[in-house]
Nucleic acid binder design. Sequence first.
DNA 1: TCAGTATAACTAGTATGGTAATTATACTAA
DNA 2: TTAGTATAATTACCATACTAGTTATACTGA
Lengths: 222, 222
Amino acid sequence: MKNIEINGSTREFVYQRIKSQIINCELTPGTKMSEKETSDKLEVSRTPVREAFLTLAQEELLRIIPQSGTIVTKIDLQLVEEGRFVREHIEKAIVREACSKINTDQLFQLESNIKMQEFSYEKGNFQQLFELDGQFHTILFEICKKNRTNNIIKQMNSHFDRLRVLSLATVSNWEKVIHQHKDIVQYVSENKPDLAEKTMEQHLKLVIIEKDELRERYPEYF
Amino acid sequence: MKNIEINGSTREFVYQRIKSQIINCELTPGTKMSEKETSDKLEVSRTPVREAFLTLAQEELLRIIPQSGTIVTKIDLQLVEEGRFVREHIEKAIVREACSKINTDQLFQLESNIKMQEFSYEKGNFQQLFELDGQFHTILFEICKKNRTNNIIKQMNSHFDRLRVLSLATVSNWEKVIHQHKDIVQYVSENKPDLAEKTMEQHLKLVIIEKDELRERYPEYF
DNA sequence: TCAGTATAACTAGTATGGTAATTATACTAA
DNA sequence: TTAGTATAATTACCATACTAGTTATACTGA
């Protein structure tokens, strides 16, 4: 029990809330913030708010200008590209490594995940499908015992997440996505690293977003 | 105390100092810390110390146990492996990309860096040689406009840095290292990505450290 | 009307006091 | 002596006061 609520601190609460609002663009890029305003709104003191701000600044979701103010960072397309770059090369290496490291229990996890993906797809529950997609990739990292790497990649892609929200990008072809997941699992379980890597590479190309259009529609966000 | 230089803030001063002490193992893995003790020692208040601690905890150099205490993290060989893994795959991709992106000014920077490496080697200034080695790789990341990625990789390798300090690992064969640097620059400038990547891969294998011996010598650090 | 300036309001940075949880210590009783 | 318990000391967490730097505002004078 204690282990679960180990981070029930006010600081963590504020951090999660603000982070969520930024990524969902409820706090739009460029929005002015202040420790006092936020602490009043959330009815906590400045200290945990300030500490949450500092963390978010390190993740480049906030920019703190000393003695002046704090703003929600604008979407940095260079950072988006770095996130994409790292994800591509690391995920390709991960599926290769997974081929030789996977055990039966982990294979079962992947297969179960895909079954649930199919179920969610049939039911039209795309929100859950999106989460299962994330979990699928997380399982691959866990197989390789590289959980931190996954977290860092997720952090590097927070600006991309905002792009996705802005574009209202619902995946257009979930069928293809799920099929690729199936292929990846098959190749990993059959220890075929080249095919697994190739499939992952194509899989990652599905999530490319049309940036120019968004930059025209929301110039003040970039 | 207003003895500050880099970002100016007390927080940054404390952060840099503690981080440096941890990486150089002046604060050994497992050492007990406390906000108050550190603030007294550095003659600052608890606030900037606390904020520096939080940052260092996110970088897994400190572990904060709520209401209990703070300790210098032990060396996590799994994290070391993750850092190595990410560095290997990203640096290989970086040299490939550098082949098509490098311009004459950047080529000059790389060549100058190598000249200075040779000079430092002749003079026996291995400390400077070590720093030039780091700068060499940094230039490659800059060519690809992926500075953040470089910083994140450096952060992921802080536990490895401690291993290196403990092992007193002075590079045994700088000549080979410098020669590989030369080869990489040549292949990048001649737009030969396969050879550049291959050389980088071998280059990174030179810095592998004998972990088992260290774990025997300093069991309390792991 | 407008430029320049003094001033007020606001910001993040720092210092410090109090709180609750944990841990070490001293004491009591068998 | 030892196990159990009450107590003291220590810790990180949170709230708040104060400082110094920045920015907006009102005022002054031409």
